[in-house]
Amino acid sequence: MKRILIVEDSPTMRALLNSALEGLEVPVKITEASSGFEALRCLPRELFDLIVTDINMPDINGLELVSFAKSNDAYRSIPLVIVSTEGSERDREKGLELGADAYLVKPFEPEHLREVVVDLLARGAQSE
C-alpha cells in the first residue's frame, strides 16, 4: 500500500489528481490537503510515500512546502511532485532546485502523472 498526499486548493483539481492516482496499478491510500497549512498538519500523522503539490495556494505556496519537507530529516526522502499551472519557467527551476523530484504542468495528462509517480515510487523502494 502506497500512501500519497495530495496538496491542492482547487476541489476540481484535487478530484482529477485523485482519480488519476487511483488508476495506479499498486494499491494506494490517498490523503487530500486543501492548503499548505493542512499539508503541514498531515505530514507528521502518516508515513507518506509520495507528495503531490500545487504551487499557488492561499496560505503557503508549494515551493515553501517543498523547502519545508526537504529541510526536515523526517520528510526529506519522500519523493515530491509539483503540479502547477503553465507559466513561470523560474518557478519550475526553483521547485527542482529546492529538491522537488518532478514538475508537471497543468493541465496534466493522467497517464503522464502516473508514469512519473510509478517512476518515483520505484526509486523510493530501491533506496529503502
Partner: peptide
C-alpha cells in the same frame, strides 16, 4: 505543529495591519 494555525494567523494579521506579508516559510 498540531495547533499552529491560530497563532500564525494572529501574527500574520497583526503584521498585515502595519505592512505586507511577502511570504511565509515553514521550517522544522
Amino acid at each position: 505543529i498540531m495547533s499552529f494555525d491560530e497563532g500564525l494567523s494572529e501574527l500574520s494579521d497583526a503584521i498585515r495591519a502595519i505592512g505586507e506579508v511577502l511570504s511565509t516559510l515553514p521550517a522544522p
